[in-house]
């Protein structure tokens, strides 16, 4: 394994426990997703790997070398796109990407070649020589990605790389994320966008309250849900009470929606049940489809009524 994290724990001086004993490993050539809500401990974890934060306990190894003891080596081996916008006002994307590539130790010629390839692949050409202060948030995000990818380390960590990026360029970005792994890097992708993660990662871990609560490939995690189908009901806000599923499967409310897990052979009765609810006015509309990673996520993390915005984003992304 390229990256091996064992029992990683971070307790801030304020007493807040951000990571509570995380075990993770990532192989070269793999895109690994780290999913979780805001505050789940994802950013704390990547900041520890790159040496910006010191773990309270546990170990981080890359190729067997201790990153906690040698944060300088960690920075050489990891390239990193932070969650916040990269502060490059005053620089053009060309200058920012090429300077960072050289600061990461690559030769000027290599940096130019890779910068040109990334700018083409992400269709950033028209902004190449414009001051970053005049770029939109999405374009800046893509430039930040190019800065992390221009001279990638053995491990590339991307913290919410698609935030603010338009749907078309998101696809281009995912292709480049995959290209990094194909070139041999391990990619650690931090996101709360479950739908995108399902399409893009080889394996993932779901983080909640600073702990890994599930891990595996998207298929393994979905198999663990025990429901091949998902019935999604949009509840009438005026409905006096939530419908009770006759299928005995996980029923999870998300905002004004109800997610019902089903085995494949229950498809017919489920549609009939949903139609009866629609006729009774309890349900406005419904959809039946294969279970997704999102269902796994919702079933595991649960309690999303209080945090509906993130799921809205996931739905928006799936619609896009």
């Amino acid at each position: 394994m390229l990256l091996e994290i064992e029992n990683l724990t971070k307790v801030y001086r304020t007493g807040v426990r951000a990571n509570g004993g995380i075990d993770l490993s990532i192989e070269s050539g793999e895109v690994f997703g780290l999913l979780g809500h805001n505050g789940a401990g994802k950013t704390t974890l990547v900041n520890q790997v790159v040496g910006l934060l010191k773990p309270t306990a546990g170990s981080i190894r890359i190729d067997g070398a201790d990153m906690v003891a040698d944060p300088g080596l960690a920075r050489r081996l990891c390239s990193f796109q932070a969650q916040s916008q990269v502060p490059i006002d005053g620089l053009t994307p060309r200058q920012a990407v090429e300077l960072v590539g050289q600061l990461r130790g690559a030769s000027k010629a290599d940096v130019r070649r890779r910068r040109a390839r990334l700018v083409d692949a992400l269709e950033l050409g028209e902004w190449l020589d414009i001051d970053a202060a005049r770029l939109s948030g999405g374009v800046k995000r893509l430039v930040a990605f190019a800065m992390a990818a221009v001279a990638p380390g053995r491990l590339v960590m991307l913290d919410e790389p698609t935030n603010d990026v338009d749907p078309v360029r998101r696809r281009l970005l995912w292709q480049q994320v995959r290209a990094l792994a194909d070139e041999g890097a391990a990619v650690l992708l931090v996101t709360h966008n479950v739908v995108e993660a399902e399409r893009s990662v080889d394996r993932l871990a779901i983080l909640d309250g600073g702990l890994v609560i599930a891990g595996g490939t998207p298929a393994e995690l979905k198999a663990g849900l025990g429901a091949e189908l998902r019935l999604e009901l949009v509840i009438d806000p005026q409905a006096p009470e939530l419908p009770v599923s006759p299928f005995g499967r996980p029923v999870v409310p998300v905002g004004n929606r109800l997610m019902v897990g089903l085995p494949t052979d229950a498809a017919g009765p489920a549609v009939a049940w949903a139609e009866s609810l629609q006729r009774a006015g309890t349900v406005e509309e419904f959809t039946l489809g294969p279970a997704t990673l999102e269902d796994v996520y919702v079933a595991l993390v649960g309690g999303l009524e209080v945090r509906p915005t993130e799921m809205e984003e996931s739905f928006d992304a799936s619609a896009a």
Binding site: V50, L52, G72, R75, R76, F80, A82, P87, L103
Partner: peptide
């Protein structure tokens, strides 16, 4: 604005 943190994440 995070300039310092960004620079600190580079092998510099």
């Amino acid at each position: 604005e995070g300039s310092l943190a960004y620079m600190r994440s580079l092998p510099v």
